[in-house]
């Protein structure tokens, strides 16, 4: 089935719809765990880096949740058919804006872009390019792929300097999440990649979840 409304397209077999929402819910829970761990670190240490990190993961979680709820609402026929386009634009619009804001924050963080102005310019540039792009969907996943790629590269460098296993898990998880974006991008051409993207994303979040369990088990 290829389900297309305006700027966004959902690709994949019928039986997979609903399962993808469950997969995404696991991602949302993992992002919530990272947000809570970072926020707790901020409350204990009062250090700003944890504050910004918790904000980034909270925003990423909201973005992820927007897509989860939108997909689920559409698959469950919560809304009349004439409302679907608006629901799609609203849900995916929120997903795109929140996800990109969180990724820009994480990239700025990884590469020590400390000025708020630089962060704002970067986000404004990406969002404006998206708005003038002929395909929101493709432009968004390309931007997400590039930013996830930079974050993964940073985390690989971090893992190489650490002897413990959790940095390696986090780096591998972000490599999966990077390729996820590429598969979502390709799903507009090859619909089978929609399932592949969700599986890759699930693996990424499961590995992140294991890393967080290991952190909490200390």
């Amino acid at each position: 089935m290829s389900y297309s409304v305006g700027m966004v397209a959902l690709q994949g077999p019928n039986w997979f719809f609903g399962i993808d929402s469950v997969f995404e819910l696991i991602g949302t829970i993992t992002l919530l765990l990272i947000f809570l761990a970072s926020y707790k670190a901020y409350k204990i240490t009062d250090m700003k880096r944890y504050k910004y990190y918790s904000i980034a993961f909270l925003v990423l979680m909201i973005g992820h949740l927007s897509r989860t709820i939108t997909n689920f609402a559409i698959h469950q026929n919560w809304f009349p058919i004439e409302e679907l386009k608006n629901i799609f634009i609203l849900g995916y619009g929120a997903h795109i804006v929140f996800t990109l804001a969180a990724l820009v924050l994480l990239v700025s963080f990884a590469f020590e872009v400390k000025q708020k102005k630089s962060f704002c310019i970067l986000l404004l540039l990406i969002l404006s390019m998206l708005f003038i792009s002929s395909s929101f969907y493709l432009a968004f996943y390309w931007a997400a792929f590039v930013m996830f790629g930079f974050i993964a590269w940073y985390l690989i460098q971090n893992a190489r300097t650490k002897k413990i296993v959790t940095p390696k898990l986090v780096a591998v998880a972000f490599v999966f999440l990077t390729f996820t974006q590429l598969m979502f991008l390709g799903s507009s051409i090859l619909p089978e990649l929609y399932m592949g993207a969700h599986i890759s994303q699930l693996l990424g979040f499961l590995i992140l979840f294991i890393a967080m369990v290991k952190v909490q088990a200390r």
């Binding site: 761990a37 970072s38 707790k40 670190a41 204990i44 240490t45 880096r49 944890y50 990190y53 990884a110 940073y154 985390l155 460098q157 971090n158 650490k162 413990i164 959790t166 940095p167 898990l169 986090v170 890393a211 290991k214 952190v215 909490q216 200390r218």
Partner: peptide, 17 residues
């Protein structure tokens, strides 16, 4: 606090903070 700090340290190392 030390136990919490161990968790924070592990979290910090894991994410390269």
């Amino acid at each position: 606090f030390f136990v919490d700090y161990m968790k924070i340290k592990e979290f910090t190392d894991a994410f390269g903070l």
